[in-house]
Design a protein around this nucleic acid. Structure first.
Length: 487
RNA sequence: GGUUCCUUGGUCAAGCGGUUAAGACGCCGCCCUCUCACGGCGGAAACAGGGGUUCGAUUCCCCUAGGAACUGCCA
């Protein structure tokens, strides 16, 4: 298999990974793995200004918890290293390649200072400025360039793009895209600090690392022609391009850290499961052949056909993510659910109750773990509630009937020793049958008394089993008192 | 402003010339039920507009409109 697919995820270490980046990484991973190819991680830290301490670790951690294990990377040499651009720069690779371009006339030294560049800037409309470099330094003679270099004048190296003609590149999803060369700016390849720009390092690295499929967000679609010209200038075969549709927020703006959109880690902190997030974002911009939505990572690898990636942007729908997280929770093994839920349970319940049973009650009722609190708070302490809660039209109960029922049933419950759900249900079932009333007629007041809540994660008898005899009786008496009865 | 891309229900989306235009989330209703939830059943809700091409356009082409991205010595 000499034609093995190689994709790469090439983030800048600038903080947490937001969802858009993670989705790119996921697709890059899936495209490679679907074909049994390699997925590499390359750190693009050519911007020392934006570099954030510890960000590389965040990237490792995020990829690992998302399950997107890379085959090669800074911590996993595959023979194409280094995998960190600042380290690659020390080898002189970028300058070396830039000079090749200069020799070919495809790039040139530029000594223009900030002031001159500023003067080229023109305002187009309300504050928006554009700048197309005027190729001023392209006119410098070889001798002039040598002289300035020798004198130590700061310089950058720019790509030389002709003013005539067009450039075309091919994208697997978007097809052929052609632009006028005159529209293309002579972008900077090597910055004055000697670092390559993203644009240049990206092309050099993708080529030298044998990346076969360049997969990235389609915000790069408009600069792709410039990259294409670089490949052509070097005489390199261009990679397969796959530009991904953007993920946006509800106002249809691109998701970005800058705008404060949730990162993967934010979502985990909000109580989402990594596998649910991964599953959800896989479906943002791609759909499987079969009509299905829940996929494990392995199933995604199996199913992922990049030709089914869509071209239009997708809104990140928090509500649906929650639903999907809930699906994962419901399908989860009860033991594992309990392990994950336990901290949330303990945060609310400090008394000695059967937390496993409570976890089981709550498993089908929550979408994310933080939802647990509102469902179980009454176990810890009977909340303040209004006597009006005893009135329920469908149950045909009122404060009066409730009082009567509670008074009737109290002695039975006091005499009862077995407080298991089944035994209690049988006991009360007897009362219901004897009185010829509906279940709810007695269960509603009981559940209300015992929980003080409109809705609970279990029925009256289930709650009493958990609360135990003493606490149940105490709460029922409190209910009777609240309804004006004597205990 | 320029360039490029995008346009099926509120959202994710199937569709790839002929369909009653799937499905999912959300919403509404019913059933189940010791409340709620789960589960089951059902409902409202879409091809941006205009021209072509064609026997026939949601599907192909053009125009218009709307949206987005890019337009940094950031990626």
């Amino acid at each position: 298999m000499s034609e093995t697919i190689r994709t790469r995820y090439a983030p800048s270490p600038t903080g947490r990974m937001h969802v858009g980046n993670l989705r790119s990484a996921l697709y890059e991973f899936l495209i490679a793995k679907h074909e049994g190819g390699a997925f590499l991680l390359r750190i693009e830290d050519t911007d020392q200004e934006r570099y954030v301490e510890g960000a590389v670790d965040i990237i490792y951690r995020t990829l690992e918890t998302a399950g997107l294990l890379h085959d090669e990377g800074p911590d996993k040499d595959g023979g194409f290293g280094p995998y960190v651009q600042s380290e690659r720069m020390k080898t002189g690779i970028y300058m070396e390649y830039a000079k090749k371009l200069v020799e070919k006339g495809e790039a040139y030294y530029c000594f223009c200072d900030k002031e001159r560049l500023e003067s080229l800037r023109t305002e187009v409309v309300e504050g928006k400025e554009i700048m197309l470099y005027d190729k001023h330094c392209l006119g410098l003679s070889r001798a002039e360039v040598e002289e300035k270099l020798a004198a130590g004048v700061p310089f950058v190296i720019r790509q030389n793009i002709p003013n005539e003609g067009t450039t075309t590149f091919h994208d697997e999803l978007y097809g052929d895209i052609t632009v006028e060369n005159a529209e293309l700016d002579d972008m900077i390849l090597i910055k004055s600090d000697g670092y390559p720009t993203y644009n240049f390092a990206n092309v050099v690295d993708d080529h030298t690392m044998n990346i076969t499929h360049v997969v990235r967000g389609n915000e790069y679609l408009s600069s792709a022609p410039k990259y294409q010209r670089l490949y052509d200038a070097f005489g390199w075969e261009s990679p397969v391009y796959i530009h991904l549709p953007l993920i946006t927020d509800e106002t249809h703006k691109k998701l970005s850290k800058r705008s404060g959109h949730s990162s993967f880690e934010d979502l985990l902190e909000q109580g989402f499961l990594p596998e649910a997030v991964v599953n959800y974002i896989a479906l943002l911009g791609w759909s499987p052949e079969e009509n299905r939505e829940i996929f494990t990572l392995d199933e995604l690898i199996e199913q992922f056909d990049y030709r089914r990636i869509s071209k239009s942007p997708a809104v990140f729908d928090y509500t649906k993510l929650k639903w999907m997280n809930g699906e994962y929770l419901k399908a989860m093994d009860p033991e594992r659910f309990f392990e994950l839920a336990e901290p949330y349970l303990r945060a609310v319940i400090h008394r000695d109750l059967d937390l496993k049973k409570i976890a089981a009650m709550v498993q089908t009722r929550i979408e994310i773990f933080p939802d647990i609190a509102e469902h179980i708070d009454f176990f810890e302490a009977l909340p303040e509630y209004d006597a009006a809660m005893y009135t329920h039209k469908k149950m045909k109960t009122t404060a009066e009937t409730s009082l009567a029922v509670l008074c009737d049933v109290l002695p039975l419950l006091e005499a009862q020793e077995d407080y298991s759900n089944d035994a209690l249900y049988a006991l009360l079932g007897g009362y219901v049958a004897e009185k010829g009333v509906k279940n709810g007629y007695v269960m509603w007041p009981l559940r209300t008394a015992v929980s003080g809540k409109q809705m609970t994660p279990g029925g009256a008898t289930e709650l009493m089993e958990l609360l135990g005899k003493d606490e149940s009786i105490a709460r029922i008496k409190a209910g009777i008192a609240k309804l004006g009865g004597n205990v």
